[in-house]
């Protein structure tokens, strides 16, 4: 989903080619169109732009996460900030990726999305690195002479640590392999991991005792030697998710004739729909006075929060957003 039709088309074409036609791609240039596609079912992954005029990608993610808990969501933005990243993850996105227009960049995004698609929930437990130590889990597996794979994920890095009969035999993270990858994964300040059944890796890159491998990673981290390679690991962008700054309290999407397509928290949908039509009329009156082209939307700033209304021939959309209050309900 992206309101930039040109980019949407380019990305869709590129993904179609890169997947060899295996991906069935549906595109939408507005949240209401995306909601319709999701409603039709059978969507496994949603990739959305963050910066959208009426309902942004983060707000839309929060809404869709509630309705489609199994949907995988990746957000793209050309304006990567810690606040947006934190809000995206808090809203329920699995990946937060910098938007790229280059073919190489799109290929990298495709690879990350492919990894995300293959990241299927399995039996086992999940944890967050900020609340449970990854080292503890590795140690537990090694001491117990277990065989397992620990999959680590955050918005920039997908990694795996292979443990066979209590020995760390391989690690891969980003573009790194072996001990460097292990050190990189152990140094991540945030993300999630999952312990899954052991599958043999394609290669074995480590044979030192696990205690030494862990100790070396800890020593390097302590000595500040883990200046990690590549832009994909940036400690500033890997902090734990923060609370979303805004809360969508009301959403109504109707067809141009008023048939409801999506309603979340709208207590008087009929009245709201009539109001949207009145807004469209008023916009037309203003435009007849000072010709400014097609009406796009009305933005209302309240003392607390804002509302956005969009009234097109084929769609009526209303979204009300309020600031999220820390430490309590909104």
């Amino acid at each position: 989903m992206d309101d930039d039709r040109e980019f949407l088309e380019a990305l869709g074409d590129m993904f179609g080619v890169l997947s060899g036609g295996a991906w069935k791609i549906r595109t939408a240039n507005s949240p209401d169109a995306a909601a319709e596609i999701l409603k039709a079912g059978d969507i496994k992954l949603m990739v959305a732009d963050v910066n959208m005029p009426v309902l942004d990608g983060i707000q839309f993610t929060g809404m869709m996460r509630k309705h489609y808990p199994g949907l995988k969501i990746a957000l793209l933005t050309s304006d990567v900030t810690e606040e947006k990243r934190a809000a995206a993850l808090a809203a329920g996105a699995e990946l937060f990726i910098e938007k790229t227009h280059s073919p190489e960049g799109m290929k990298a995004v495709f690879t990350m999305l492919g990894e995300l698609l293959n990241w299927s929930p399995r039996d086992g437990f999940q944890g967050m690195l900020r609340s449970v130590s990854l080292q503890d889990i590795i140690q537990m597996e090694c001491v117990g002479h277990n065989s397992s794979v620990i999959e680590i994920c955050n918005e920039h890095v997908l990694g795996r640590i292979y443990i066979e009969e209590g020995q760390i035999i391989h690690a891969a993270g980003g573009e790194l392999m072996g001990e460097r990858a292990l050190q990189k994964l152990l140094s991540l300040p945030g993300g999630s991991f999952e312990l899954v059944p052991f599958e043999p890796p394609q290669q074995r890159t480590m044979n030192a005792p696990w205690e030494m491998l862990i100790a070396e990673a800890t020593r390097k981290a302590g000595a500040g030697e883990l200046k990690l390679d590549g832009p994909e690991v940036d400690a500033a962008t890997l902090a734990p998710p923060a609370e979303a700054a805004q809360l969508v309290t009301e959403t109504l999407v109707c067809t141009g004739t008023g048939a409801p397509l999506y309603d979340d928290g709208c207590q008087q949908a009929q009245a709201r729909m009539q109001w949207l039509m009145a807004v469209a009329q008023q916009a037309a009156i203003f435009n007849s006075t000072c010709s400014l082209g097609h009406f796009d939307r009305l933005d209302i700033q309240y003392p607390e929060g804002r509302a956005v209304a969009q009234a097109r021939e084929d769609r009526l959309v209303y979204v009300r957003v309020k600031p999220a209050k820390k430490g309590g309900g909104a």
Binding site: P53, W275, A278, V279, Q282, A283, F286, N287, C290, L292, G293, H294, F295, D296, R297, L298, D299, I300, Q301, Y302, P303
Partner: peptide, 22 residues
């Protein structure tokens, strides 16, 4: 009155058009 709910006057409203904003 179109933009004013009970006890909820807006701070401001903006109409966005293709070539301008009011």
């Amino acid at each position: 009155t179109l933009f004013t709910g009970p006890n909820l006057p807006p701070k401001w409203v903006t109409f966005h058009y293709e070539h301008g904003q009011i």
